[in-house]
Structures are given as structure tokens and as C-alpha cells.
């Protein structure tokens, strides 16, 4: 996903000198091509994330669309107040790019896991959360973000994902995107956001879920909560999947969107077990042990 992101960013920067990339001394083997092609649009802020986010805001204030690229908690929690006061409050075109979705950096441990980031980004009224499920969704999200400059959060997986779409889908904020719709008569679906869509696709093979359809929601956030209810109402059961803790996560967001109105749809969210904290291993190992157990055999 990282390389697809950079490809799309290069495409955008070729057309627009106001596209800027800032890193916090991270991005080895990913950002070099951009830096070489656009030396005046690339900055390394050093290991200083609060300053980096402030600088990004200042550049955005002068009409640039700034992409801030980093891992997990560094461009999010470390500089949360800069995102709140400088980026979101001023409604500035800063895109925060996190390349460590969920437990992408499994063996690097808890400091590098993104398990609470939705919870933070959901709090900002102007922020859109772009959490693509495959490379095609990355392209679609990037095209949307570049065209609609605003405070945004792009959450990417580190490893290569399954291809879920044959071509670049047309994404609309808040609107669910069909991935697998073979059994719509069953009225039961998986709803995912981000990286976890691949895993949901695998679950469809299991007998328990083989009548389920699969939808993803690649772009969401506070602004689009009020358009979830009508989409939920169409189904008997919506199983919401996320590689994030339950509290403040995507599942909570979907549940909140019903605003306690009585609907017949059964909404169940499956989030990562909090016992994952302090555990290490590959992404697959961690998901097997702390997530897939919720789905039975």
C-alpha cells in the first residue's frame, strides 16, 4: 500500500506544485523517488513530530496540500494537539499518512501498533478518515483526497494486500462499497474498513459466513455518521470488522450512528482483543491469536 500511495502522490505532484511531502526521518525505500523528483516539495522534519505537524499546518495555511508521512502513533498521538488546534480547527489541507495500520508492525511491539488511532481521528469534526482495504482503494482514496483538499487521515497497511477490486472503485465519503455481493438475499453482511477487508474476504469461505456479502467503507469520519442509518437498515445483520480496539473504533462509530433509534438490523462489532497489548509476533500471528478466535472455526 505504501508504494501505491507514493505512486499516486507522484502523479498528483506532477500536476500541482502545491503538493508537499514531510516525513519525520522515516520512509526508507518509499519516499526517495518523490524526494528526488520534487526536491522543493519534500522536507525531512527530523524526529520531531509536534514541530512537523505545526510546520505542515503553516505550509497548508499558505495554500499547500501537505502530506505528513510516518508510522502509527508518531503522526497521530504524539502530535494530537497540533492536529486538533492547528490542522482540524483551521480546516487545513493536511493529510496524515500512517503506514502502520492495526498490527502491521507486529513484531515491533505496542509502541508501533495502531490500535487506538481511529478513536483519536474520530474526535475531529473536519477530519476525514481514509482507510483503504486494498491497493485499488488506496488509489481511489488518494484521488479523492487530492481532489478534495481538507484535513484527512490515510491509514495504510505495511504489507501487500489481497486485491479486492478489479479496477479503481468510485469512493464517496460515508458510502459503503460492495466487494462481494453474491448472496445479497441472505441480508447478512460484513462491513469493514481498511486493511481488515482481506481477512473478511477469507472468512467468506467458511461455512458459517458463506452466505454473507462483504462491504467496505474506505472513507468515513464524524461528518458522515448521519448517513449510516439508512445503509444499515437495508440488512438483517451487519457484522462490523476492524483491526482496532473496540473503544472509540469503527464498530463503535457504526453503533453510535443509529443514535439509539430502534432498527431491526442486528449490529455486531468484532474488534481486536485488548489482550494483544504487549504481545508481539507477525501480523498474521497476532490476528490469528487475538482476532480470528472471535469467528470460530
Amino acid at each position: 500500500m505504501r508504494n501505491i500511495f507514493i505512486e499516486e502522490l507522484i502523479l498528483a505532484a506532477k500536476k500541482n506544485k502545491k503538493i508537499v511531502l514531510i516525513v519525520n526521518d522515516l520512509g526508507y525505500s518509499v519516499v526517495e523517488k518523490f524526494a528526488k523528483m520534487f526536491p522543493n516539495q519534500f522536507y525531512n522534519a527530523g524526529v520531531a513530530e509536534q514541530n512537523m505537524m505545526g510546520i505542515a499546518s503553516g505550509m497548508a495555511l499558505e495554500g499547500n496540500h501537505v502530506f505528513v508521512y510516518s508510522i502509527g502513533n508518531f503522526p497521530t498521538f504524539r502530535c494530537a494537539e497540533q492536529i486538533r488546534n492547528d490542522v482540524d480547527y483551521h480546516n487545513l489541507p493536511v493529510t496524515i499518512v500512517n503506514v502502520g495500520a492495526g498490527v502491521s508492525y507486529g513484531s515491533l511491539g505496542y509502541t508501533h501498533h495502531s490500535l487506538q488511532d481511529y478513536g483519536l481521528m474520530r474526535l475531529f469534526p473536519n477530519m476525514i478518515i481514509a482507510s483503504p482495504g486494498d491497493d485499488m482503494e488506496v488509489r481511489a482514496c488518494m484521488k479523492y483526497i487530492v481532489k478534495n483538499s481538507q484535513p484527512s487521515y490515510l491509514r495504510l497497511a505495511k504489507t501487500k494486500n489481497k486485491i479486492l477490486h478489479k479496477k479503481i472503485p468510485n469512493v464517496k465519503p460515508g458510502k459503503w462499497l460492495p466487494i462481494s455481493t453474491k448472496h445479497t438475499q441472505s441480508k447478512k453482511i460484513f462491513l469493514t474498513t481498511g486493511n481488515i477487508a482481506s481477512l473478511a474476504k477469507d472468512l467468506l469461505i467458511r461455512a458459517k459466513y458463506n452466505k454473507f456479502s462483504l462491504y467496505s467503507l474506505p472513507i468515513w469520519g464524524m461528518k458522515f455518521k448521519n448517513i449510516q442509518l439508512n445503509q444499515l437498515k437495508k440488512w438483517d445483520e451487519v457484522l462490523v470488522l476492524e483491526d482496532h480496539l473496540e473503544d472509540g473504533g469503527f464498530g463503535s462509530w457504526i453503533k453510535e450512528s443509529t443514535n439509539n433509534q430502534k432498527i431491526k438490523t442486528k449490529i455486531i462489532s468484532k474488534s481486536i482483543d485488548k489482550k494483544i497489548i504487549s504481545k508481539v509476533g507477525s501480523e498474521q500471528y497476532l490476528l490469528d491469536k487475538y482476532y480470528l478466535k472471535f469467528f470460530g472455526k
Partner: peptide, 29 residues
């Protein structure tokens, strides 16, 4: 920044200088 003539809101200390640097960097660019 909602007040005419004011470009940026502050209130939490340590924010204005990095933003000013971003603005100066943009002018250089």
C-alpha cells in the same frame, strides 16, 4: 482566526512558532 486580520488561532503554547516556520518555508519554496 475568525477575527478579520488574524491568520492563525493560538492559545496552547508552543504552537505558533512551528506554524510560522511552515509559512516561511512555503514562501521560500
Amino acid at each position: 482566526h475568525h477575527v478579520p486580520g488574524i491568520k492563525f488561532s493560538t492559545g496552547s503554547l508552543g504552537h505558533g512558532l512551528p506554524v510560522a516556520i511552515g509559512s516561511a518555508l512555503s514562501a521560500k519554496k
